[in-house]
Design a binder for these strands. Structure first.
Lengths: 210, 210
DNA sequence: TCCTGTGAAATGCTTCACAGCG
DNA sequence: CGCTGTGAAGCATTTCACAGGA
């Protein structure tokens, strides 16, 4: 029944996103309710795990029936804070930054991309996902104007820490880091890193021996 | 003391990639040895954790000195199987597929991108990262010819499972999935998923309450 | 009956703390 | 000294198993 992030096991939080994805799929096919067992099976988890994860936030299942899909979706969005739009910006308009910017799912998932930045003068002014690429100098104004809380970092490894420092200084609280380098941030800031090479290494290891 | 993947805690395997990244950075600045404490500090981990993770695979530190950077890099690459080139292919030549293909770090990390596929006729033949986009019909030939073991999936969610099924049928053992949908695969196949929306949700949750 | 919510047990992972080596 | 490697302790997460509601 607790709600504070620190009280919920981290692995459970990661699974909540999976539940939400799956529930959205179910809603799209007009499924009204789903049991913890069915939800678990579709994600290769156990039913007890699904129930326990959801129970961290309250009791919204009905014995004998299961969970109502649409209300549970709304509840999960509320938990994530994505029932309201969160403004997000991207720094780095290279291949990866542009690809992420082009991802159409932001709005439907509760995020709105409000600006794209790059330090390369040649890229300034070009349109990326209908937004003009802006120079880093304009970060303060944009962050203030749109009350941006989260940033996506798609810059080269060498520039990542400096850009992150600047973003944090300007009030950004969460950073999704695509650079293959770990960021040092104060504990008040959260980062998640996506490193394609590291993921491939994991796969290579896990598929190797046996 | 070398173990099969199943004996090593999953979180430890994930950290090994971080160690390798950091060691490569150290090697680039000609640092010869590093202690578990220093390595840990640069990654926000504890020294005991670093030692324990490495000890799953043998003893390669020297008391009083630490770990020799270059030999440890080689050892880690051996553990991951990236001391030899692993052939990899990408399915999906959309924005994301092209961005991942353009990522220059494959070769240096032990992976070689050998082919790019797409089901859209209009994309066939276009060059992506110096490789011509091929139709899915040519998957069997390419996988056989290059002995491809791993695939990167950058197709729309609706197509992901079908493409994964086909890849597995053709002998692919590891799949890096960028589609926002969970894949159902036999236990002989390993998948890792990268879901930008899910990562943003995590950030949103972790930065929301206190 | 089917299904949730949840204590209790089991498992897994991290941290501690220290013997022993260079 | 400084530092590793590692049992043992401590903590976190998952699984079990069942009472009770619809």
């Amino acid at each position: 029944m607790s709600r504070s992030p620190s009280d919920v096991p981290n692995p459970a939080v990661r699974r909540l996103s999976l539940y939400l994805r799956q529930l959205e799929t179910l809603a799209a096919t007009d499924v009204a309710t789903v049991s913890s067992r069915k939800l678990a099976q579709s994600l290769n988890l156990t039913d007890a795990q699904v129930r326990k994860d959801l129970a961290y936030f309250g009791q919204f299942g009905r014995p004998g029936v299961g969970y109502e899909v649409v209300p549970l979706i709304q509840r999960l969005r509320g938990i994530f804070g994505t029932d309201r739009t969160t403004h997000t910006l991207i720094v780095g308009a290279g291949n990866l930054g542009r690809a992420v910017a082009a991802y159409g799912g932001f709005r439907a998932k509760g995020f709105e991309l409000v600006a794209v930045f790059d330090s390369d003068e040649k890229k300034i002014g070009r349109k990326v996902a209908r937004l003009p690429v802006q120079p880093l100098e304009e970060l303060p104004e944009v962050i203030n104007k749109h009350d941006v809380r989260m940033a996506i970092l798609a810059v080269p490894a060498g520039a990542a820490q400096a850009v992150a420092d600047r973003l944090i200084e300007l009030g950004i609280r969460g950073i999704l880091n695509f650079a293959p380098t770990p960021l040092q941030v104060p504990s008040s800031v959260t980062t998640r890193s996506v490193d394609v090479a590291a993921e491939l290494e994991q796969l290579s290891f896990l598929t190797s021996a046996e």
